[in-house]
């Protein structure tokens, strides 16, 4: 469904992502891994319209979506989460989810000012759907708590649920389990599997190898902005180049 063709991004003299191409199959979990500084988050920002590409094209279901701004991509069925959590602290948990439904709700100013029936009906309908989504991750009881009072692990899942609320075909998760403990990581894994059951395609950027190997259908390995390898978890685990890249990188740190 997603075709990425020769995308390149330079920052000054540094080539962060270099002539990268890959395909993401519909309904799959496609992970992108690589050592720190390999250009993974840059890639997410390129695919979601945060950075303008220096060259290359991105197709979604055959349509060109290169350089479309983030907020318009949502209407094409792409949504993302952030490495450093972006949840609205002073909104309640439910309100954060309702934000995800925003694109379906009327924001007509006149109707808003005069509280038309349409506005109220929308609120009522999406209130139910929001509560349903929260129940998927067992958060109904926190629905009316302000987000800032909740733990980091819960908010990470809330962010994914919010993305799901936008009704996407494709979700990009940028390090959804960074900073989480084993139990919380497990909960996020479950949630990601749930997304796929909902016919959502997932692109996953993650450092947690166990999780990546567990749930991915396909893995693309990046190093220095280029594609190093691609294949099933099994293939990647046995790939010499990949092992070399990771060990080499570890070597520098150690």
């Amino acid at each position: 469904m997603l075709k990425v063709r020769s995308v390149t991004k330079k920052f000054g003299g540094l080539v962060a992502v270099d002539n990268l191409s890959f395909d993401v199959k519909k309904g799959s979990i496609h992970s992108i891994i690589g050592p720190n500084g390999a250009g993974k988050t840059t890639l997410v920002n390129m695919l979601t319209g945060v950075y303008k590409l220096d060259s290359g094209t991105v197709f979604l279901d055959g349509g060109d979506i290169t350089n479309i701004p983030t907020n318009r991509l949502v209407h094409r069925g792409i949504c993302r989460t952030f490495q450093n959590l972006q949840v609205c602290d002073n909104l309640t948990v439910l309100e954060n989810v309702l934000l995800g439904f925003d694109k379906y709700m009327s924001k007509n100013l006149l109707k808003t000012f005069f509280r038309s029936q349409k506005i109220l009906d929308d609120e009522e309908r999406y209130f139910q759907r929001g509560m349903h989504l929260l129940s998927l991750i067992g958060l109904e009881e926190y629905a009316h708590k302000e987000a800032k009072n909740l733990s980091y692990g819960i908010l990470k899942r809330l962010e994914i649920i919010r993305a799901l609320a936008t009704g996407p075909e494709l979700i990009l998760l940028d390090e959804p389990v960074a900073g989480l403990n084993t139990k919380e990581t497990q909960e996020v894994s479950e949630l990601i599997k749930l997304l796929v059951q909902d016919d959502v395609t997932v692109i996953l950027i993650e450092h947690d190898m166990k999780m990546v190997m567990d749930i991915s259908d396909t893995i693309t390995v990046m190093n220095f902005g280029q594609k190093l390898a691609e294949g099933t978890p099994q293939e990647i685990a046995n790939n010499k180049d990949v092992i070399q890249a990771y060990l080499g990188n570890e070597g520098h740190h150690g």
């Binding site: 983030t70 907020n71 318009r72 609205c88 602290d89 002073n90 909104l91 925003d102 919010r162």
Partner: peptide, 15 residues
């Protein structure tokens, strides 16, 4: 209110 809290969050849900 979402814009006040996080413009990125608002942007990423299509606002």
């Amino acid at each position: 209110r979402s814009i006040r809290d996080s413009e990125k969050a608002a942007d990423c849900v299509g606002i």
